[in-house]
Amino acid sequence: MTLLLLAGTGEAKIIAAHLHASGIAAIASLAGASRAPAPLALTTRTGGFGGEAAFRTYLNDQAITAVLDATHPFADRISQRTARVCADLSIPYCQLLRPPWRPGPGDNWTLIDREEEAAAHIAPGATVFLATGRQTLHRFANLAACTVISRQINVPDTPFPFPNGRFLQGDPPFSERQEYDLFKSLGIDWLIAKNAGGTTPRTKLDAARRLGIRVALINRPPQPDAPRVTTVEDALAWVHSL
């Protein structure tokens, strides 16, 4: 067996270490969204595959016999394509998808489907903290009447793409206390985040609740109709069942 692990999450890092320790033949793949990703315990390729045809060729050339998809819940195009190709090629596929966040007592969330919808809920002049990454930043251009702070792991060399905004460099993970202190010091009125799920990324939501900050939470895109697990343990059990 040669397993392809589509990585990019904390869960994938744990899985890679287990696969290496277990002596299971596996290759990890990173999309290359971060300039300096944390190293994985497996042989790792970085960057896109170059389209569906090239991905099919890669699976064949590397003699991949199974694919474990542990990408981010918002890497939907990767997941949809991978599930479809694996089904066509009769390659076992499983998606590890952590459960979404649910609001609890004290949370003041507004659920939206697209980034552009946030502006309909946020009054001009508000101070908005974007915890949504860099690839969708342009979709918040209609927040130009607000003060927008966009946290990035790798701050771009280019100016902020619209008025009244700035970048803030930050390397996760962040504790709830760190998020609390940061949001308080910046005078944040709104937090915008993706519903990524997971324990560590939730600290920003917990800090927002304590400070009474409103949250615009972006719903997840549709996921592939394919075998799925929600925990690292179940993902590893799937691997060992092959």
Rank of each mutant, 00 (worst) to 15 (best):
A196I: 08
A235P: 08
V229T: 04
G165P: 07
D206C: 11
K184T: 14
G197Q: 07
Q152F: 13
T230L: 02
G165E: 00
I218F: 13
Q169M: 15
S185L: 00
T199Q: 12
T147V: 15
F174M: 01
F167Q: 02
Q178C: 03
A237Y: 07
R209H: 07
N164W: 02
T158G: 01
A237L: 10
R214N: 10
L205M: 14
G197R: 05
I213K: 15
G197M: 11
P173S: 09
T158A: 13
P227T: 14
Q178M: 10
A196F: 04
D206N: 11
N164F: 03
P161G: 08
T231D: 01
I192S: 12
V232H: 06
V155E: 12
R177E: 12
G198N: 13
T200N: 12
D206G: 06
L205D: 05
D157F: 01
P163Y: 05
D225N: 05
R228A: 03
N195Q: 07
K204G: 04
L205H: 10
D234C: 06
L236P: 00
T199E: 09
T230S: 13
W190N: 01
T199Y: 07
D189K: 09
Y180I: 04
V232K: 03
I188E: 11
T203F: 07
R209N: 12
L191Q: 12
R202N: 13
P221F: 06
Q223F: 06
Y180K: 05
E233L: 13
I153T: 12
G170V: 15
F167L: 04
P172H: 09
R220M: 07
R202D: 12
F167N: 06
G212W: 14
K204V: 07
K194T: 04
A207T: 09
R209A: 14
R166C: 02
I188H: 12
P156N: 05
R214Y: 06
Q223Y: 04
P163N: 11
L211A: 12
L191C: 13
R177Y: 04
W190K: 03
L211R: 14
G212R: 15
F162C: 03
R214I: 01
G212P: 15
L205N: 08
R209V: 11
A207G: 09
V215K: 10
I218R: 09
V215F: 09
D157T: 04
V155I: 12
G187H: 07
N164Y: 03
V215L: 08
L186P: 08
R209E: 09
D157S: 03
G187Q: 01
V155S: 09
R228H: 02
N219E: 08
W190G: 00
E176N: 02
T230Y: 00
F167I: 04
R202S: 08
P221G: 10
N154P: 06
E179K: 15
L211D: 15
D189H: 14
F174D: 00
R228Y: 02
L217R: 01
S185F: 00
R202F: 13
N164L: 02
L211T: 14
R166T: 01
